[in-house]
Design a protein around this nucleic acid. Structure first.
Lengths: 331, 331
DNA sequence: TTTGTATTTTGGAACGATCCATTTGTCAAC
DNA sequence: GTTGACAAATGGATCGTTCCAAAATACAAA
């Protein structure tokens, strides 16, 4: 059924090794045998088996891509970029959906069974300890969109969430807002904690109290609607900083349903700068997260981590404000 | 570094085969040896190598998941469901992003090299001939969201796009719309062709001319905006049927920017019923595509296709109208 | 005890590649 | 024609499993 190297060798009248070498670049083969082999391979429709080769080489060119957020459209872009970047370098992603049902430790074992060359964890909602589990199983691991943790001993690529929380606060203060609310992402996410931490710090420095802090149940539009409805019942607010664009859009829709106009009656500041933030229906001013840079770097780190890596690196990319129409102008 | 079956066997004082059998369910092992083996495996931290095992069994429990649309948020849900469904059955998806740069035939060869147990093509924008290439390479293939083709000889799971084009037309006619425009998805997609074909048929039967037919460049919001702007310059229209929700949202935003209110000045009918269609900002009446059913079935077919399958099956699921607020009421 | 049947166990031979120590081939210089 | 140096080709061993034919064991019936 499937054509093997041995058959090609026989057909070309050379040894198995000769065939093997023609297909591994950098190996030395005379042009005469190379021609013979290539002709035979083409005729038989031969393609070297990655499975068999990885048994001896120890490399599979597979990268485990672990994610747990398949609701937030940002992640579609994330998957797009990850697959493209990996493919461009000759690697393929083995996608793992970390649902609530599946035991996280199971995914470690599973990826080990497939002998993946590395693991990329793409989520901001998992603690550093999760990445550590892969590290302990001797799997090279990068935590993209993660939080630096001195204990976890794991490579991290992402953004400085504390600094960006500050940026959010400064943005609102510069526009003269005084009654300011925050709707964070899920409370357990490290990114939420850090962003709010930075936000609080900058507000404290400006000596302005935060009117209200609440958290969305999940990174979804619905959760944003719910959080905003509840907020509107509690307080009258001038502006809301949301921990994520998607949540922010839900909040905006809830505000409009309540008859408020944006940015006249109430302002909104998002986070991430997903594509939809630019749509006319929202036209959301938000903080841009350099997703492409993060992914580029995460793949690079994941691929280049050969043996037991030395000291793990943490790469943080700067974010910047993308000004659209959901905030009043700077005073 | 990695613990092998041989080491477990030695440690447990049994043969290699005994260990192998303990880890393959359905194999007969005495409870005494099973205990010994399991204890030794646990102590050594052994996990059977999928790579090595697949070399002899010929099965990898890998399924190639090929997609080419990483812009449309519908596909995030698609990936979510595919990964969940596959994982629940003990399979893992090897994700392939079919970009314009990559040669399609290359992906066939690549998936063959990894010896995947099957391939699922998840896209409506590729011709049946693409699926055929996998079939010819002896890879079991299912085309999800595809079009039935007697020549391609490939399993298809999806919807009847012609019938749903008719449903769209009837929906608009029932509401008394007379000047009706269509903005299709990319013109080359089989789904676009079929939907428009059905739409035309139903309109012809009702003896009402279609005012305008145009096509969006891609399945994106931007393409919808562009198509709608161009349409507004050309004609005055009562209602627009869009070949996809995302395109429709772009069209709606363009209409609103032009000062039109929905559904008072202009109506919109979408296709797919993606989550965003239910958001307040759009509140889009649309035709629901049973994505979950399609995926469930596609996985089932992909997994159960053992040898050279008999006659390929085509499974089509019915769609239904989801009434929201972007059309005037039925007359 | 012997025989028969059913259940376990066993080690050697795959599976399809690469690695490596040897052998073979090529070509220039003496 | 011999030698040396280097490039290329060779086949056996190996990677970590499963498969398979044969051997061993268990246990009930004669």
């Amino acid at each position: 059924m499937t054509v093997t190297l041995k058959e090609v060798a026989e057909s070309a009248g050379v040894s198995r090794s000769a065939v093997s070498r023609t297909f591994t670049d950098g190996a030395s083969v005379s042009s005469k045998t190379r021609e013979k082999v290539e002709a035979a391979a083409l005729a038989l429709g031969y393609a070297p088996s990655m499975i068999a080769s990885s048994l001896t080489t120890g490399r599979t060119k597979l990268i485990g891509l672990v994610a747990n957020n398949f609701q937030n459209p940002v992640f579609l872009q994330v998957f797009d970029l990850f697959t493209r970047t990996l493919q461009a370098r000759g690697y393929r992603p083995l996608l793992v959906n970390l649902t609530d049902e599946t035991d996280p430790s199971y995914s470690v074992q599973m990826l080990k069974q497939y002998n993946v060359d590395g693991v990329i964890i793409a989520t901001s909602t998992l603690p550093p300890s999760f990445a550590r589990a892969f590290h302990q199983a001797n799997l090279p691991v990068v935590h993209a969109f993660g939080r630096f943790d001195p204990v976890a001993n794991v490579d991290v690529v992402g953004i400085d969430n504390v600094a960006n929380g500050k940026l959010a606060a400064k943005t609102l203060l510069a526009r003269g807002y005084l009654s300011i609310a925050v709707i964070g992402g899920p409370e357990t996410a490290t990114s939420t904690k850090d962003r709010i931490k930075g936000f609080k710090q900058a507000m404290a420095q400006a000596k302005i109290a935060i009117s209200d802090i609440s958290y969305a149940r999940s990174y979804t539009h619905t959760a944003g609607v719910e959080a905003m409805r509840s907020l509107l019942e509690r307080k009258k607010i001038e502006v809301v900083f949301c921990g994520d664009d998607l949540i922010c859009m839900g909040a905006m829709d809830a505000a409009r349903t309540a008859g408020l106009s944006i940015p006249h009656d109430i302002g909104f500041l998002g986070f991430n700068d997903m594509e939809m933030a630019g749509w006319q229906a929202y036209n959301l001013t938000t903080i841009h997260q350099p997703v492409a840079d993060i992914i580029q770097r995460a793949v690079e780190v994941a691929i280049c981590m050969d043996a037991a890596s030395t000291t793990p690196t943490t790469t943080l990319y700067p974010c910047e404000l993308v000004e659209r129409g959901s905030l009043r102008p700077v005073m």
